[in-house]
Design a protein around this nucleic acid. Sequence first.
DNA 1: CCCACACCGATT
DNA 2: ATCGGTGTGG
Length: 310
Amino acid sequence: MNRYELELPVAELDLPLCVSSGQVFRWERLPSGAWLGVDGDAWYRVETGVCAHDRAVRPKVERPLDALRVCVESNRPPDRFRSLFRLEASLPEVERAILDRGPELATFVRALPGLRVLRPSDPSEVLFSFLCTPNNNLERITRMVAALAEYGEPIAELHGRVAHRFPDAARIAAIPESELRAKGFGYRGRSIPNVARQLLRMPEDWLAGLSKLPYVEAHSKLCGLDGVGPKLADCVCLFGLGFLEAAPVDTHLWQAACRLYFPHLRGKSLTESRYREVGGFLRARFGPLTGWAHQYLFYDNLLRTRRRPQ
DNA sequence: CCCACACCGATT
DNA sequence: ATCGGTGTGG
């Protein structure tokens, strides 16, 4: 077990925002306010906060006013935490680079301070997690991913609950469709084990190996899986394989892109050719920051449609 | 290239 | 009643 404490400028990280913005689905807030999360073979218990609370309790803290303290307990070293939250990237610099290329994103960036594109450690976990996302909402996705995780090996007992490592493809392939349907997976109860069986037919490490290909080739290989279309393939490319030029275009990104860039397409359906058009446009504009730009547009639109349906 | 439909549960 | 990724079929 490792305990460590990171101190960052507050502008660098909003952990609750990062783990609640539809990138990962295995984090929960405990009644104490701490966050419990699992990523690959790592678990984390995180307490984080601006030191405003400290200041209220102990008015004279020596810490700078804009410091964020992150206290982590984990079975893995600090580098894994830094990698997951991509802390080697300076968020203010990313924001500035995005605004240089797309000043129209200023309101989005300002509305979501501390939002980062995460880098989960296991592409297989990312693939199966995002197979739960179509036609779905964050709450149910989280339940479904938790149900899948129960099939994995226990890695820790924390606060009375058992954290599981996400199951491998062989384990998922063995789950009967009826069992997943009984757990509320709907038609995904068939496609999830089916994708797992397809992975088993590939060479070992086929999925992780896609990260060595050019983005376009990795994307196209992922689309070759029955049950994986362009959107899921881009989610795996961005979050699972680290292709920052990927832009998963779902209904939220489509709406945001239409408002900002394609007013003549508002209300039209998202066809495959328009999918490519949006992705190409964003890549031309944001280059290697496309994934970051996508995350601002996606989550802003998600919040927007929650407050005001339609 | 675009559309219409089924899938299934959530939301209106 | 409508929505939403993907597959299928027109």
